[in-house]
Amino acid sequence: MEFHSPDSWREALEVKAAQPEAVAIFGGTDVMVDLNFDRERPGAVLDLTRVPELGEWGEGDGRLRVGAGVTYTRIISELGSELPGLAMASRTVGSPQIRNRGTVGGNLGTASPAGDALPPLYVSDAEVELASTNGTRRVPVVEFITGPKRNAMRPDELIAAFHIPRAEGPQQYAKIGTRNAMVIAVCAFGLALRPERKRVGACLGSAAPTPVRAREAEEFIESVLDWDSRGEIGDTELRRFGELVGEAASPISDVRGTAAYRTHAVGVLARRTLGWAWDEYRRGE
């Protein structure tokens, strides 16, 4: 097994161009488990923890650009007000030890339907910045994730960053686990209100082969919400929203939970989180 540990982005891309089969590693929360349990024996591993560019974030063209190597801990502490939904999701990831190492870039690379960072990216129409020695391109996250543990990366590409608008309104993230900490999502739900555009983003996690936007539910609730007078949402409408989110699910039954429960629970999370987010909006926070 070859080990590469470039200390610049340029060099990292060159390694990847020369050895497209090299497996990128950052926090190791997926790659190391595969190595430790003899599930994968890649020919080469490409360590990205020494690439300073990946740990940077900044703002430009109205959006944030967050390096793929910004850890969950830093998202919580540095980007909590800019990206509250993502910060809430980050807080549900593993333990402090995991959040200190794990990154959104890793969640994107692994493309697990249970990736906690993904629903917040979906609801904000984030884009993934991919780079190779041939240049960079941006792919909407919804197109980037193509299936369970599959993404649209070309073999010579690495994930450089994601681009995401600063929160325009209240955001929420909720996740079901049978334990009260340290769980992989049985199912999860991300929500973003965008009052200026009168839009709602709703995304299910771990309830389909990929995270899925609940478009019907979004359209339904957008048509119902009284954005200008900030009036209450009726029980019927909240419930309908939850049902429509549940209908967007196409889950499986596995050791973590049954399909029926996932469908049910994600609907409840949708109803509750919408209530919380709307309350926050009404309070003018």
């Binding site: 949402i233 419930r239 049954t258 409840v268």
Partner: peptide, 15 residues
């Protein structure tokens, strides 16, 4: 194995 026959009843404020 199946979703509940009736959706859960929300309380007074729906949530």
């Amino acid at each position: 194995e199946k979703p509940p026959s009736e959706p859960p009843q929300p309380g007074s404020r729906g949530y």
